[in-house]
Protein backbone atom coordinates (compact mmCIF):
# COMPACT_ATOMS: atom_id res chain seq x y z
CA UNK A 1 0.00 0.00 0.00
CA UNK A 2 2.78 2.34 1.00
CA UNK A 3 4.68 1.60 -2.20
CA UNK A 4 1.58 2.04 -4.27
CA UNK A 5 0.87 5.48 -2.87
CA UNK A 6 4.50 6.50 -3.33
CA UNK A 7 4.24 5.60 -6.98
CA UNK A 8 0.98 7.52 -7.28
CA UNK A 9 2.59 10.57 -5.65
CA UNK A 10 5.53 10.34 -8.03
CA UNK A 11 3.19 10.07 -11.01
CA UNK A 12 1.18 13.10 -9.93
CA UNK A 13 4.36 15.14 -9.45
CA UNK A 14 5.45 14.23 -12.96
CA UNK A 15 1.99 15.12 -14.30
CA UNK A 16 2.19 18.49 -12.54
CA UNK A 17 5.66 19.03 -13.95
CA UNK A 18 4.50 18.24 -17.48
CA UNK A 19 1.48 20.50 -16.99
CA UNK A 20 3.77 23.35 -15.95
CA UNK A 21 5.97 22.87 -19.01
CA UNK A 22 2.83 22.87 -21.15
CA UNK A 23 1.40 25.92 -19.37
CA UNK A 24 4.67 27.81 -19.65
CA UNK A 25 4.70 27.32 -23.42
CA UNK A 26 1.03 27.73 -24.29
CA UNK A 27 -0.69 29.88 -21.68
CA UNK A 28 -0.94 33.64 -22.13
CA UNK A 29 0.73 36.05 -19.74
CA UNK A 30 -2.45 36.57 -17.70
CA UNK A 31 -3.00 32.86 -17.11
CA UNK A 32 0.63 32.33 -16.19
CA UNK A 33 0.40 35.17 -13.75
CA UNK A 34 -2.61 33.55 -12.07
CA UNK A 35 -0.72 30.26 -11.84
CA UNK A 36 2.18 32.11 -10.21
CA UNK A 37 -0.21 33.76 -7.78
CA UNK A 38 -1.67 30.34 -6.91
CA UNK A 39 1.77 29.07 -5.99
CA UNK A 40 2.64 32.19 -4.02
CA UNK A 41 -0.64 32.05 -2.13
CA UNK A 42 0.13 28.41 -1.38
CA UNK A 43 3.38 29.49 0.28
CA UNK A 44 1.61 32.27 2.18
CA UNK A 45 -1.28 30.03 3.19
CA UNK A 46 1.05 27.31 4.45
CA UNK A 47 3.05 29.79 6.48
CA UNK A 48 -0.05 31.28 8.06
CA UNK A 49 -1.53 27.86 8.67
CA UNK A 50 1.58 26.90 10.62
CA UNK A 51 0.98 29.82 12.98
CA UNK A 52 -2.82 29.95 13.14
CA UNK A 53 -3.83 26.45 12.20
CA UNK A 54 -1.20 24.14 13.67
CA UNK A 55 -0.11 26.13 16.71
CA UNK A 56 -3.45 27.80 17.41
CA UNK A 57 -1.94 31.28 17.67
CA UNK A 58 -3.73 34.22 16.15
CA UNK A 59 -1.44 36.25 13.95
CA UNK A 60 -2.72 38.94 11.61
CA UNK A 61 0.66 40.30 10.59
CA UNK A 62 1.10 38.51 7.32
CA UNK A 63 0.80 41.60 5.16
CA UNK A 64 3.54 43.21 7.26
CA UNK A 65 5.89 40.24 7.03
CA UNK A 66 5.27 40.12 3.29
CA UNK A 67 6.02 43.83 2.98
CA UNK A 68 9.38 43.34 4.69
CA UNK A 69 10.23 40.43 2.41
CA UNK A 70 9.00 42.16 -0.72
CA UNK A 71 10.92 45.38 -0.08
CA UNK A 72 14.13 43.58 0.90
CA UNK A 73 14.07 41.37 -2.16
CA UNK A 74 13.13 44.21 -4.50
CA UNK A 75 15.80 46.57 -3.18
CA UNK A 76 18.48 43.91 -3.44
CA UNK A 77 17.59 42.67 -6.91
CA UNK A 78 16.83 45.95 -8.70
CA UNK A 79 19.41 47.11 -11.18
CA UNK A 80 21.41 50.22 -10.28
CA UNK A 81 19.83 52.10 -13.19
CA UNK A 82 16.34 51.25 -11.98
CA UNK A 83 17.25 52.37 -8.48
CA UNK A 84 18.49 55.69 -9.78
CA UNK A 85 15.25 56.22 -11.68
CA UNK A 86 13.12 55.44 -8.64
CA UNK A 87 14.89 57.50 -6.03
CA UNK A 88 14.62 61.01 -7.37
CA UNK A 89 13.05 62.46 -4.21
CA UNK A 90 15.82 61.33 -1.88
CA UNK A 91 18.89 59.28 -2.74
CA UNK A 92 18.99 55.65 -1.70
CA UNK A 93 21.06 54.95 1.41
CA UNK A 94 24.60 53.69 1.10
CA UNK A 95 24.93 49.92 0.97
CA UNK A 96 21.77 49.48 -1.07
CA UNK A 97 22.69 51.98 -3.76
CA UNK A 98 25.72 50.07 -4.94
CA UNK A 99 24.81 46.41 -4.76
CA UNK A 100 22.75 44.05 -6.85
CA UNK A 101 22.21 40.57 -5.50
CA UNK A 102 20.99 37.45 -7.26
CA UNK A 103 17.37 36.44 -6.63
CA UNK A 104 17.69 33.47 -4.26
CA UNK A 105 19.92 35.05 -1.58
CA UNK A 106 17.75 38.19 -1.71
CA UNK A 107 14.63 36.11 -1.11
CA UNK A 108 16.27 34.32 1.80
CA UNK A 109 17.46 37.57 3.34
CA UNK A 110 13.96 39.01 2.92
CA UNK A 111 12.58 35.99 4.75
CA UNK A 112 15.18 36.35 7.50
CA UNK A 113 14.32 40.03 8.03
CA UNK A 114 10.63 39.16 8.28
CA UNK A 115 11.49 36.42 10.78
CA UNK A 116 13.62 38.81 12.85
CA UNK A 117 10.81 41.34 12.99
CA UNK A 118 8.31 38.63 13.90
CA UNK A 119 10.60 37.73 16.79
CA UNK A 120 10.79 41.33 17.99
CA UNK A 121 7.02 41.83 17.76
CA UNK A 122 6.09 38.41 19.08
CA UNK A 123 8.46 38.03 22.02
CA UNK A 124 6.82 40.55 24.37
CA UNK A 125 3.29 39.55 23.42
CA UNK A 126 3.29 35.82 22.98
CA UNK A 127 3.58 35.04 26.66
CA UNK A 128 0.31 36.83 27.31
CA UNK A 129 -3.21 35.85 26.39
CA UNK A 130 -3.32 34.61 22.84
CA UNK A 131 -5.56 37.24 21.33
CA UNK A 132 -3.18 40.10 22.16
CA UNK A 133 -0.94 38.61 19.51
CA UNK A 134 -3.67 39.33 16.97
CA UNK A 135 -3.76 43.02 17.84
CA UNK A 136 0.01 43.35 18.16
CA UNK A 137 0.68 41.71 14.80
CA UNK A 138 -2.16 43.59 13.11
CA UNK A 139 -0.78 46.78 14.63
CA UNK A 140 2.70 45.89 13.46
CA UNK A 141 1.45 45.32 9.92
CA UNK A 142 -0.07 48.82 9.97
CA UNK A 143 3.08 50.36 11.49
CA UNK A 144 5.29 48.81 8.87
CA UNK A 145 3.20 50.59 6.24
CA UNK A 146 3.54 53.86 8.13
CA UNK A 147 7.30 53.38 8.44
CA UNK A 148 7.73 52.41 4.79
CA UNK A 149 5.72 55.45 3.74
CA UNK A 150 8.03 57.73 5.71
CA UNK A 151 11.48 56.31 5.02
CA UNK A 152 11.98 58.03 1.69
CA UNK A 153 15.68 57.14 1.45
CA UNK A 154 15.17 53.40 1.85
CA UNK A 155 11.75 52.47 0.51
CA UNK A 156 11.01 55.51 -1.67
CA UNK A 157 8.02 56.29 0.54
CA UNK A 158 4.50 56.39 -0.85
CA UNK A 159 5.81 56.39 -4.42
CA UNK A 160 6.77 52.75 -4.08
CA UNK A 161 9.28 50.90 -6.20
CA UNK A 162 8.95 50.44 -9.92
CA UNK A 163 11.03 48.47 -12.37
CA UNK A 164 11.67 45.50 -10.10
CA UNK A 165 13.08 42.71 -12.27
CA UNK A 166 10.34 40.20 -13.13
CA UNK A 167 12.42 37.27 -11.99
CA UNK A 168 9.54 35.26 -10.57
CA UNK A 169 8.38 32.69 -13.09
CA UNK A 170 6.53 29.41 -12.85
CA UNK A 171 9.69 27.52 -11.90
CA UNK A 172 10.60 29.85 -9.05
CA UNK A 173 7.10 30.06 -7.62
CA UNK A 174 6.19 26.38 -7.91
CA UNK A 175 9.71 25.32 -6.89
CA UNK A 176 9.59 27.35 -3.71
CA UNK A 177 5.99 26.30 -3.07
CA UNK A 178 7.11 22.67 -3.30
CA UNK A 179 10.07 23.26 -0.99
CA UNK A 180 7.78 25.05 1.49
CA UNK A 181 5.30 22.19 1.41
CA UNK A 182 8.02 19.63 2.06
CA UNK A 183 9.50 21.67 4.91
CA UNK A 184 6.05 22.18 6.45
CA UNK A 185 5.19 18.48 6.24
CA UNK A 186 8.45 17.44 7.86
CA UNK A 187 8.09 20.15 10.52
CA UNK A 188 4.51 19.15 11.35
CA UNK A 189 5.45 15.50 11.70
CA UNK A 190 8.54 16.21 13.79
CA UNK A 191 8.52 16.40 17.58
CA UNK A 192 8.34 20.19 17.26
CA UNK A 193 5.23 19.91 15.13
CA UNK A 194 3.58 17.56 17.61
CA UNK A 195 4.40 19.99 20.41
CA UNK A 196 2.79 22.79 18.39
CA UNK A 197 -0.36 20.74 17.85
CA UNK A 198 -0.44 19.93 21.55
CA UNK A 199 -0.31 23.66 22.32
CA UNK A 200 -3.20 24.20 19.93
CA UNK A 201 -5.34 21.53 21.58
CA UNK A 202 -4.72 22.55 25.18
CA UNK A 203 -2.08 25.00 26.24
CA UNK A 204 -2.10 24.18 29.92
CA UNK A 205 -2.05 20.43 29.39
CA UNK A 206 0.82 20.86 26.93
CA UNK A 207 2.76 22.88 29.45
CA UNK A 208 2.21 20.21 32.07
CA UNK A 209 3.63 17.64 29.69
CA UNK A 210 6.86 19.61 29.69
CA UNK A 211 6.45 21.51 26.42
CA UNK A 212 8.20 24.87 26.41
CA UNK A 213 5.31 27.12 25.34
CA UNK A 214 7.38 30.20 24.56
CA UNK A 215 9.93 28.34 22.49
CA UNK A 216 7.44 26.46 20.35
CA UNK A 217 5.09 29.38 19.84
CA UNK A 218 7.96 31.65 18.83
CA UNK A 219 9.35 28.99 16.56
CA UNK A 220 6.02 28.70 14.78
CA UNK A 221 5.64 32.46 14.45
CA UNK A 222 9.22 33.02 13.25
CA UNK A 223 9.18 30.19 10.70
CA UNK A 224 5.76 31.33 9.49
CA UNK A 225 7.03 34.89 9.12
CA UNK A 226 10.11 33.67 7.23
CA UNK A 227 7.98 32.01 4.58
CA UNK A 228 5.63 34.98 4.50
CA UNK A 229 8.68 37.15 3.74
CA UNK A 230 9.79 34.79 0.98
CA UNK A 231 6.26 34.79 -0.45
CA UNK A 232 6.23 38.58 -0.34
CA UNK A 233 9.55 38.68 -2.18
CA UNK A 234 8.21 36.38 -4.88
CA UNK A 235 5.08 38.50 -5.20
CA UNK A 236 7.06 41.76 -5.53
CA UNK A 237 9.28 40.34 -8.24
CA UNK A 238 6.24 38.91 -10.00
CA UNK A 239 4.31 42.17 -10.15
CA UNK A 240 7.28 44.41 -10.85
CA UNK A 241 5.98 47.29 -8.73
CA UNK A 242 5.28 47.54 -5.02
CA UNK A 243 4.10 50.34 -2.78
CA UNK A 244 3.06 50.54 0.88
CA UNK A 245 -0.66 50.59 0.03
CA UNK A 246 -0.39 47.13 -1.47
CA UNK A 247 0.23 45.60 1.93
CA UNK A 248 -3.04 46.58 3.55
CA UNK A 249 -5.15 44.27 5.66
CA UNK A 250 -6.79 43.04 2.46
CA UNK A 251 -3.80 40.79 1.83
CA UNK A 252 -3.90 39.21 5.29
CA UNK A 253 -7.63 38.70 4.90
CA UNK A 254 -7.14 36.74 1.67
CA UNK A 255 -4.65 34.40 3.29
CA UNK A 256 -6.85 33.95 6.35
CA UNK A 257 -9.69 33.10 4.01
CA UNK A 258 -7.54 30.49 2.29
CA UNK A 259 -6.61 28.69 5.47
CA UNK A 260 -10.12 28.80 6.93
CA UNK A 261 -11.62 27.45 3.74
CA UNK A 262 -8.96 24.77 3.36
CA UNK A 263 -9.13 23.74 6.99
CA UNK A 264 -7.05 25.13 9.80
CA UNK A 265 -4.46 22.48 10.38
CA UNK A 266 -4.36 20.75 7.03
CA UNK A 267 -1.50 21.20 4.59
CA UNK A 268 -3.24 19.62 1.61
CA UNK A 269 -6.36 21.62 2.45
CA UNK A 270 -4.36 24.86 2.29
CA UNK A 271 -2.80 23.93 -1.04
CA UNK A 272 -6.17 23.04 -2.57
CA UNK A 273 -7.89 26.13 -1.24
CA UNK A 274 -5.02 28.45 -2.26
CA UNK A 275 -5.72 27.42 -5.85
CA UNK A 276 -9.51 27.63 -5.48
CA UNK A 277 -9.44 31.04 -3.81
CA UNK A 278 -6.85 32.61 -6.10
CA UNK A 279 -8.64 31.47 -9.22
CA UNK A 280 -12.10 32.42 -7.96
CA UNK A 281 -10.81 35.87 -6.95
CA UNK A 282 -10.02 36.34 -10.63
CA UNK A 283 -13.16 34.66 -11.92
CA UNK A 284 -15.40 36.72 -9.65
CA UNK A 285 -13.79 39.93 -10.77
CA UNK A 286 -16.96 40.51 -12.80
CA UNK A 287 -18.76 41.34 -9.57
CA UNK A 288 -16.70 44.50 -9.33
CA UNK A 289 -16.95 45.48 -12.97
CA UNK A 290 -19.83 46.15 -15.27
CA UNK A 291 -20.59 43.30 -17.66
CA UNK A 292 -22.94 42.78 -20.55
CA UNK A 293 -24.44 39.35 -21.22
CA UNK A 294 -26.39 39.70 -24.44
CA UNK A 295 -29.14 42.24 -23.80
CA UNK A 296 -28.75 42.13 -20.02
CA UNK A 297 -26.51 44.80 -18.63
CA UNK A 298 -25.34 44.28 -15.05
CA UNK A 299 -23.74 47.21 -13.35
CA UNK A 300 -20.86 45.94 -11.24
CA UNK A 301 -20.22 47.54 -7.91
CA UNK A 302 -16.67 47.98 -6.63
CA UNK A 303 -16.23 46.03 -3.43
CA UNK A 304 -18.96 43.47 -4.18
CA UNK A 305 -16.38 40.73 -4.60
CA UNK A 306 -15.04 41.27 -1.11
CA UNK A 307 -18.56 41.41 0.36
CA UNK A 308 -19.09 38.01 -1.20
CA UNK A 309 -15.85 36.64 0.22
CA UNK A 310 -16.44 37.96 3.72
CA UNK A 311 -19.93 36.45 3.80
CA UNK A 312 -18.46 33.12 2.69
CA UNK A 313 -15.81 33.39 5.43
CA UNK A 314 -18.44 33.95 8.13
CA UNK A 315 -20.66 31.16 6.82
CA UNK A 316 -17.74 28.73 6.60
CA UNK A 317 -16.51 29.48 10.10
CA UNK A 318 -20.01 29.17 11.60
CA UNK A 319 -21.41 26.18 9.75
CA UNK A 320 -18.40 24.31 8.35
CA UNK A 321 -15.70 25.25 10.81
CA UNK A 322 -13.68 22.29 9.52
CA UNK A 323 -13.32 23.86 6.10
CA UNK A 324 -12.61 21.55 3.18
CA UNK A 325 -10.22 19.24 4.96
CA UNK A 326 -10.40 20.04 8.68
CA UNK A 327 -7.21 18.69 10.21
CA UNK A 328 -7.19 15.74 7.84
CA UNK A 329 -4.68 15.30 5.06
CA UNK A 330 -5.16 13.98 1.59
CA UNK A 331 -4.03 10.41 1.12
CA UNK A 332 -4.17 8.01 -1.78
CA UNK A 333 -5.42 5.25 0.51
CA UNK A 334 -8.56 7.15 1.38
CA UNK A 335 -9.12 8.17 -2.20
CA UNK A 336 -8.81 4.60 -3.42
CA UNK A 337 -11.15 3.30 -0.75
CA UNK A 338 -8.57 1.70 1.54
CA UNK A 339 -9.29 2.72 5.10
CA UNK A 340 -6.11 1.75 6.85
CA UNK A 341 -5.62 4.40 9.49
CA UNK A 342 -2.39 5.84 10.69
CA UNK A 343 -1.92 4.60 14.25
CA UNK A 344 -2.52 7.19 16.94
CA UNK A 345 1.00 6.78 18.25
CA UNK A 346 2.36 8.03 14.96
CA UNK A 347 0.33 11.18 14.99
CA UNK A 348 -2.79 9.85 13.29
CA UNK A 349 -6.21 11.17 14.19
CA UNK A 350 -9.04 9.31 15.84
Amino acid sequence: MKRKSNILTLISIIVLFLFLIYANRNFDAYQIRILNLCAIYTILGLSMNLINGFTGLFSLGHAGFMAVGAYTTALLTMTLAAKEQNFFMAPLVYPLNSIVWPFLPSLILGGLFAALIAYLVGAPVIKLRGDYLGIATLGFAEIIRVVFTNTQGITNGALGLKGIPNTTNIWWSFGIAAVTTIIMISLINSSYGRAMKAIREDEIAAQNMGIDLFKHKMMSLVIGAFFAGVGGGLLGNLLGTIDPLMFRFFLTFNILFIIVLGGMGSITGTVISAFIVTISMEVLRFLDEAIRIGPIYIKGVAGMRMVFFSVILIVVIIYYSQGLMGTREFSWNKLLGGNKKKPLAKGGTK
Binding site: G56, F249, L256, F309, S310, L313, I317
Partner: peptide, 21 residues
Protein backbone atom coordinates in the same frame (compact mmCIF):
# COMPACT_ATOMS: atom_id res chain seq x y z
CA UNK B 1 -11.75 30.97 20.46
CA UNK B 2 -9.90 31.34 17.19
CA UNK B 3 -13.14 30.64 15.27
CA UNK B 4 -14.97 33.52 16.90
CA UNK B 5 -12.01 35.84 16.30
CA UNK B 6 -12.04 34.89 12.64
CA UNK B 7 -15.78 35.49 12.53
CA UNK B 8 -15.15 38.94 14.00
CA UNK B 9 -12.58 39.65 11.28
CA UNK B 10 -15.11 38.48 8.72
CA UNK B 11 -17.76 40.85 10.08
CA UNK B 12 -15.29 43.76 10.14
CA UNK B 13 -14.35 43.14 6.55
CA UNK B 14 -17.96 42.64 5.54
CA UNK B 15 -19.05 45.96 7.07
CA UNK B 16 -16.17 47.83 5.41
CA UNK B 17 -16.92 46.44 1.98
CA UNK B 18 -20.65 46.71 2.41
CA UNK B 19 -20.11 50.39 3.19
CA UNK B 20 -18.03 50.74 0.03
CA UNK B 21 -20.75 49.04 -2.03
Amino acid sequence: KISILISAIGVAYLLENLAIV
